[in-house]
Write a protein that binds this DNA or RNA. Structure first.
Lengths: 217, 217
DNA sequence: GGTATAGAAATTGGCGCCAAAATTGGTTAC
DNA sequence: GTAACCAATTTTGGCGCCAATTTCTATACC
């Protein structure tokens, strides 16, 4: 696919963020400004600005006089990010269920299906994009925009999905099943089930038999 | 007061952020680069970089070819920020209580007392600093650093305390009392009480009679 | 043969200058 | 007297150049 000619500064940081998340740049890799210039067809200053923004978001680390390299989250940080995501996504579950219209649910089913289809036919990058699309649509249903923003930002801080999360085909397929289960929970108006499924999805715990007990918090 | 000669770039953004929060720059005010240059004794480029960082943190807004102005959070956003803070700070309460040593509690008492003393003797800015110090020490007890970072950043996004939160002397005194109550809850090892007090502190609800029922989530 | 050192190439990062755009103030026409 | 228009000043923002620092390479010495 061709690189779109969209040289907006803010957009460059986003594009680079996506590429980092998608695993185009390996963790720890040094990002040389000249390379980025040619790769994104951007001016030197835009590259520098984008790198500063990414450094502020902790996606890259800045070492004075050495440059910027892709940040490698240690285990502790990864675990902490998961914990915060767990807190916030479960907190958002209520309003997601409350706000979802029939059209929203249909759209989510389409996105979940697209992800499922791409397991066989698509590349890992396609899969990554489809996953992002599903979760974007899902989160957009929440009523608290600040919460959504933070979650979106937080998603970038964890380890990139293709590299560490989707290690095995089985794991990807489980993710896909979880997507469908989440949609069904929303369709059923069952916020508690959505919370439970979201927690499993983030923590990547093994699939449970359908539980009926009400465990709050 | 003299401006310290600390021209670290990242630090400049923080100093400006503090000044915005403290109300030095009125909401909506245009921040002219030359003024900032002289005020902070910084180079033009540092100012620009700091402004970009603040724009990314949503503390200022950037209008192309017009400049940067202090962001005015609308009511909806302010409410949403409060909601997220509520979720996260109550979530942190558990580990705060668990981690607090006797020395920590003593330190918190000192900081709460300093705030109380400054109600009479200090300026509004002193009060602001003391409040920050208390909450910094409090949050630092949490074990999840990511959560602490987000909360700290979130604090900047809400309306500045002196301008909108501490409207009346009575309100400030209630805040001070709540500080002490929070310390006592920690000393007693009562996470539930700390959660409740934190919620009240953020929402600025009226003081309740000491409740005993267990209301989770 | 391996290591240390010096020189060369490359990379980052800062500074100043200048053009484009906007605001201000004054002047003129209606 | 008011409104519109035009000129002058101010302000932002981009571009290119160059210095400081680091990394790579080749040579010499142990």
């Amino acid at each position: 696919m061709s690189v779109k000619a969209d040289p907006a500064t803010g957009n460059l940081a986003d594009r680079m963020a996506r590429d980092i998340q998608a695993g185009v740049f390996a963790p720890g890799m040094w990002l040389k400004q000249v390379d980025l210039e040619t790769r994104y067809e951007a001016k030197r200053m835009e590259v520098r600005r984008a790198l500063d923004q990414l450094a502020l978001k902790r996606l890259v680390r800045h070492v004075p006089n050495r440059g910027y390299h892709v940040h490698v989250p240690d285990d502790r940080q990864a675990e902490e990010v998961r914990e915060v995501r767990l807190i916030l996504e479960t907190a958002a579950a209520g309003s997601i269920v409350a706000n979802a219209t029939a059209a929203d649910i249909a759209a989510l089913r389409v996105l979940a299906q697209r992800f499922a289809d791409l397991i066989l036919e698509g590349t890992l990058l396609d899969l990554y994009e489809a996953n992002i699309a599903f979760h974007a649509k899902l989160l957009a249903l929440g009523s608290n925009r600040e919460l959504i923003n933070i979650l979106w930002e937080l998603r970038g801080r964890g380890p990139s999905a293709p590299v560490t999360q989707w290690k095995t085909r089985a794991r990807i397929e489980q993710s896909s099943r979880e997507h469908f289960h989440m949609v069904e929970a929303i369709a059923a108006g069952d916020a508690g089930a959505l919370r439970r499924l979201t927690a499993d999805h983030i923590l990547q715990t093994e699939e449970r038999p359908p539980a009926h007990e009400q465990d709050g918090a």
